[in-house]
Amino acid sequence: MNLAIAARPEPICGSETMLPVPVRILDMHPENFNTRTVQVQIVDEGLRQRYRWVPGQFNMIYVPGIGEAAISISSDPDQHEAVGHTIRLVGSVTRAIERIGKGGMVGLRGPFGRGWPLDRLHSGDVILIGGGIGLAPLRPVVYWLLKHRDRFRRVMLLFGCRTPEDRLFVPELEKWDEDPRIDTLVTVDNATGEWVGPVGVVTKLLQRIRINADRTTAFVCGPRMLNRAAAWSLEQLNVRSERVFISLERNMNCGFGQCGHCQYGSKFVCKDGPVFALSEIADIFAKEEV
């Protein structure tokens, strides 16, 4: 099996016993009307020092009596004191996390999965395509790219969401928009309020930029239809499928590739992914009901 696995930190929390480690909610920042960025700190200092992760990995956040949810890490990988998770308040776990609030405690297992292949970006162009909450696992990539900016040529971030009110990380999007090191384009499906920017699906933004197919690597994370539309648009632009990476979403329970919920063909999204090269999943990516 050819799964090009980049170096990735292994879970230090609960890998033996499934017992989550206690973490304290240091901050809960509202990104928009239904999305919060939750900064948590591992209480045990020894574990905190050992805990490392790479962009694209996720944690299982546990609320006793409610359950566990797989949440992407959205903070700066070089920041070790706290780990950021951007949650949309749609399920019982995310709502419970909001109720517990700043200062409260939850459980954490992780980090899980294979992240973005940062080591394969070489000296080419990088396009990040995010839809909605899919921007969360891409934010650590932006931090990392800006920190090592001289290693790449063009860096582009294309982000789309339903309405301007659905945007997340708005102050940062505005900051990146003015930063000459990164080309940031934001589009919305429905222009409400005072929005004067692009309107339409995020793949339409690809028409606004010049793609140099030979040296482009794309990282894509969004809802299923966006992932597909982005993959096909990039294919039409002749970006090789080995250089298009997509972060998939599945129902997950264990994180160890054993409980079977995230089975995607012969792969486990929690362990072989969540980030896959399009070429690794080309045979089933277009299929419904895998």
Binding site: M18, P64, G65, I66, G67, E68, N253, C254, Q258, C259, G260, H261, Q263
Partner: peptide, 24 residues
């Protein structure tokens, strides 16, 4: 068949996080 579900089973005082048989 080896798939399992993980759920909290308990009440307001506490409970157990259980690994239960599941089916695709």
């Amino acid at each position: 068949c080896h798939c399992f579900d993980i759920v909290d089973e308990g009440d307001a005082r506490g409970g157990s996080r259980c690994k239960n048989w599941d089916s695709c």
